[in-house]
Design a protein around this nucleic acid. Structure first.
Lengths: 223, 223
DNA sequence: CAATGAGTGAGACTAAGTGTCATACGGCAT
DNA sequence: ATGCCGTATGACACTTAGTCTCACTCATTG
């Protein structure tokens, strides 16, 4: 059952690696996997889908993670959920890199991947704008935030796929901290106000500001 | 030549409106337009592409706009360029709304549109990260910024398509001002500091802050 | 043993997309 | 006017993705 799916997926990656994507027909994959064309299309709806075998499952896990988070979790829940996606691919290891080789070569597959990313973004936006108030500004903010979270994920993932990054854990934390820094709203990030009595030296002001900014970064990381 | 393209595109929209997208074959469109199947596929590479007849042209105009902007233009050039896209669709009027009806109904067309948006985002990212320094933080920032610009555009466009917005000009300016507010870097946005002597009433402080924030929005608009 | 139901294979069918070849049309030089 | 050439078109064949239907197998259950 599930073994058949893996069998087919493996066969597909094998043939794509040898002959290329376009030159490999669904019939080729099916016979390589020892199943019929019918079962291929029953297992995966399309030739493209065989490259992304467990996308629906990940999306489901992400959605559940968001659903089970408290209403006031806000951005933190989303940045947390996106790590599920990243670490899933990292855990796949070489298979993820094979997929990357295909998606960066074959336009149709690249587009398919893009569509997957957009589904996450849509999900994030829905949750973020649901948590926030209903003002138009808040909705635009939610949309931008969702886009930024996905962008951060994509960036780290791409770097890892290209072996430009050895510690995806650290990089995603940093990238998401940057997202927090620019998007965490007032209820999460306390508004700081610096009251400077006349006569305080500029160096002391500078020091205080720096310390305050570092504090924001650190707090967002731990939250 | 170009007239044949328009003829085909019109015929396609006509039939899609009557029979729906799936129920209309390329043969139907070709005979409705009075051309052969061959010319259809020569004019548009695929059945989906007939919905987005001048996408390549817009992308070209956007790219040229970016190419011709000075190296220190930064975010302003990109937010300016994205208006080309928005106003093109707004100028299309009802045709754009017909397209929206199709893209919100037919998954394949929605995906295609998504891919178009991603091309803009990619373009913006390339220019933003080219203008900025090469640090990893700057590149992530460029990626997030590009995503935010596209998100802002998408939001305003969608609202206009749904007739939820009567003044797209004003809304896009506001939305892009929000992007500027969160992403304009220090060289573009002057850092404001509010020094509050003890004894000043809170209402006066609030007023001053509000005025300052409005000022930022306006300045970013004009730049 | 009979019945049910899920998974599979075989095969027909539609339609998108590609490639080839022949033809018609419009300009251009002789 | 005639012959030539490049371009746009139409006709047609072909491949392949994706859908649908029907028949078969096999394991479970009453």
């Amino acid at each position: 059952m599930a073994a058949a799916r893996d069998e087919i997926s493996d066969a597909a990656f094998r043939l794509f690696g040898i002959q290329g994507y376009a030159a490999t027909s669904v019939d080729d994959i099916a016979s390589e996997a020892g199943v019929s064309r019918s079962t291929f299309f029953r297992s995966f709806g399309s030739k493209e889908a065989v490259i992304f075998p467990d996308h629906d499952e990940i999306l489901g896990r992400v959605e559940e993670r968001l659903r089970s988070s408290p209403a006031d979790a806000g951005l933190a829940a989303v940045t947390d959920a996106v790590k599920i996606v990243l670490f899933h691919y990292v855990a796949e290891g070489e298979r993820a890199r094979e997929r990357y080789g295909l998606t960066s070569t074959v336009p149709a597959l690249r587009e398919r991947e893009l569509v997957s990313g957009a589904r996450y973004q849509r999900l994030f936006r829905r949750y973020l704008s649901h948590w926030a108030d209903a003002s138009p500004e808040a909705e635009l903010r939610a949309e931008m935030t969702a886009a930024a979270v996905v962008a951060a994920h994509n960036r780290v993932l791409r770097r890892w796929l290209r072996r430009e990054c050895t510690d995806p854990q650290r990089e995603i934390e940093q990238a998401l901290a940057a997202v927090h820094r620019t998007f965490a709203d007032e209820s999460e990030a306390s508004i700081g106000m610096l009251v400077v009595p006349a006569g305080v030296p500029a160096s002391a002001v500078e020091k205080a500001v720096k310390r305050a900014l570092e504090g924001i970064a650190v707090r967002n990381l731990d939250q």
